[in-house]
């Protein structure tokens, strides 16, 4: 066989290409980084599942050749929680957007982090709701315009790494879609990390966010990242607000350990029941 194969063929659903994302969109880059991370992390692809919510980033699940779930708006994290707890031998990754994970799904985000459910959450942040035509998101910087903030946003946006850390995440990093190598490294680390791990990916949305704010095309956005981003590993996450066209601070901010939901559950029940209790874990998976 001499046929040329795509290097990602084992990870992407080639029969679903081309994808729906716009030229210049950052989601494809994030998917590429994820695919490379999967290869680097050397985890069993048959035991890896991706869960997405709704939105442009919500479509990621449909393009990865893994067990993949395209769920309802905002509910990727609780779905992933159920999946992971029911089958602890799975590596469960949530890939979705800022609106999906942090607005409608915000409550689930903080609680999953608090419980330290062993899932990886990769949030693609393009500062607006793109799938529906570019509306205000909980991440839209003041005073960017969107279709529902036509006179400029005036609500203060969330600082996602700070939200993640203060809710209990054990791994927190942020990169832009320009910083593929570092992003891939963070994703790889997150995939091997035990516990609620969070990576924010700042991504261009040329069709809506950039156009409406007259910021040029996808390449212009990458130039902005190039000129305005700085790496400050370990910086206090309180310092990570992103102002409109201001500096973007990137890096790995949190990497610590604490018991996951299942570890805490096993500890507790062992204390209470002693030998009568059988540890809950991968052996409890009911596979085919």
């Amino acid at each position: 066989m001499n046929a040329v194969t795509h290097p990602m063929e084992d990870i992407l659903r080639m029969d679903r290409m081309p994808h729906i994302w716009c030229p210049g969109c950052g989601i494809g880059t994030a998917v590429t980084a994820f695919a490379m991370a999967l290869q680097k992390a050397e985890i069993c692809l048959d035991k890896t599942a991706v869960v997405s919510g709704i939105g442009c980033s919500g479509r990621v699940a449909g393009y990865v050749k893994l067990d993949s779930f395209h769920t309802t708006h905002g509910r990727a994290i609780p779905f992933a929680t159920g999946l992971k707890l029911a089958n602890p031998e799975l590596t469960v990754v949530v890939i979705s957007g800022d609106g999906d994970l942090i607005a409608i799904g915000g409550n689930h985000f903080i609680h999953a982090a608090r419980r330290n459910v062993d899932i990886k959450v990769f949030c693609i942040n393009n500062f607006n709701y793109a799938m529906t035509g570019g509306q205000l998101a909980p991440t839209t910087p003041e005073p960017a315009t969107t279709t529902t903030s036509p006179y400029g946003a005036f609500e203060h946006p969330f600082n996602l790494p700070f939200l993640a850390e203060s809710s209990g995440a054990v791994y927190v990093a942020r990169w832009t879609a320009l910083h593929i190598r570092r992003l891939t490294k963070s994703m790889t680390e997150a995939l091997s990390k035990k516990g609620f791990s969070f990576v924010e990916i700042i991504a261009p949305c040329p069709t809506l966010y950039s156009r409406r704010n007259r910021l040029g095309d996808g390449l212009d956005e990458l130039k902005y990242y190039h000129d305005n981003s700085v790496i400050k590993h370990g910086l206090d996450t309180r310092e990570l607000d992103i102002g409109y066209r201001k500096e973007i601070v990137m890096g790995k901010f949190v990497d610590k350990d604490r018991p996951t939901f299942i570890e805490a559950l096993n500890d507790r029940f062992t204390q209470v029941f002693g030998d009568k209790y059988e540890q809950y874990g991968p052996q409890n998976a009911n596979g085919n």
Binding site: I77, F79, T81, G82
Partner: peptide
């Protein structure tokens, strides 16, 4: 909302 979503995840988890 989370309960029902988790139940679906649980079901697909086997």
């Amino acid at each position: 909302l989370a309960s029902m979503a988790a139940v679906l995840g649980g079901a697909w988890g086997g």
